[in-house]
């Protein structure tokens, strides 16, 4: 698995120009809006999505046949992909926070640490959800065919979330907003503790989403023929 991780790292490093572009754009938006929140989101999304490109690269010119003939297994391949995705999300998150702090210093912007952390954590969960949907679909259909499937899946998820919300609030008259406010009001008054709890909750959601996605990817890989 170490070899596969090195391979994916090398693929990502090949795309370092994209990372620089993300930082430059982030800096541009931070400077013009005097706000680093957008930069935080932008950097996280762009960097995290790089993990997905490794699947596309693996698939080029029969690359998967080569990979599966190496000393690895289909199971190890899937585990590695999720481990790499998780590590990449973590690095993107940390890099985003550090870069935003530095941009704040550089441009003299008053940076609210809590806002940057919340923004980064929120974006990480969002992009994590996208990856969780995309990884099994790309493994199942390949890069080209997966696009339609991804579009349909994202639409289906949106319908489920919006529909589910409407169903619970309008049909079953459950006050979700009130429940959320109730939970938030019970958080400790310390800002640091609040940030930690919110970040922890985001992390938990992310881990659950990726774990579910892993199960799907594993089943797909164990059945796929090349």
């Amino acid at each position: 698995m170490k070899g596969l991780l090195i391979k994916d790292l090398k693929i990502i490093l090949n795309q370092k120009k994209l990372f620089l572009v993300a930082v430059l754009f982030g800096a541009f938006f931070a400077y013009t809006n005097k706000d680093v929140t957008f930069a935080a989101t932008y950097i996280v999304i762009l960097m995290s999505m790089l993990a997905l490109t490794t699947i596309s690269y693996d698939d080029i010119n029969g690359g998967m046949l080569f990979i599966l003939s190496l000393p690895t297994t289909r199971k190890l391949y899937v585990i590695e992909k999720y481990l790499f995705t998780a590590l990449n999300l973590l690095c993107s998150c940390v890099a985003s926070i550090v870069i935003c702090m530095l941009l704040g210093q550089l441009f003299g912007i008053d940076v609210n640490t809590s806002t940057v952390i919340a923004s980064t954590a929120g974006s990480t969960v969002g992009v994590g959800l996208m990856l969780a949907v995309n990884i099994p679909l790309e493994l199942k259909f390949g890069v080209e065919k997966s696009r339609t499937a991804i579009f349909l899946s994202v639409a289906a998820i949106a319908v489920i979330i919006v529909g589910g919300y409407k169903l619970l609030t309008e049909v079953f008259h459950i006050d979700l907003k009130g429940m959320a406010m109730d939970v938030l009001s019970k958080l400790p008054s310390s800002q640091v503790a609040q940030d930690a709890i919110i970040a922890g909750a985001f992390l938990l959601v992310l881990v659950i989403i990726l774990a579910i996605s892993y199960v799907f990817s594993y089943k797909i890989m164990m059945k796929k023929e090349y």
Binding site: G3, K10, I11, N61, G62, F66, S69, P71, T72
Partner: peptide, 27 residues
């Protein structure tokens, strides 16, 4: 096991020297 498949290329987007660390970790 050593394998060569006509329809399977190696990691096309890397260089031959990049393969050293990958293969060293694999074998």
């Amino acid at each position: 096991l050593g394998v060569v498949l006509t329809e399977a290329n190696t990691f096309d987007y890397l260089r031959a020297k990049d393969l050293v660390s990958i293969l060293k970790a694999m074998y």
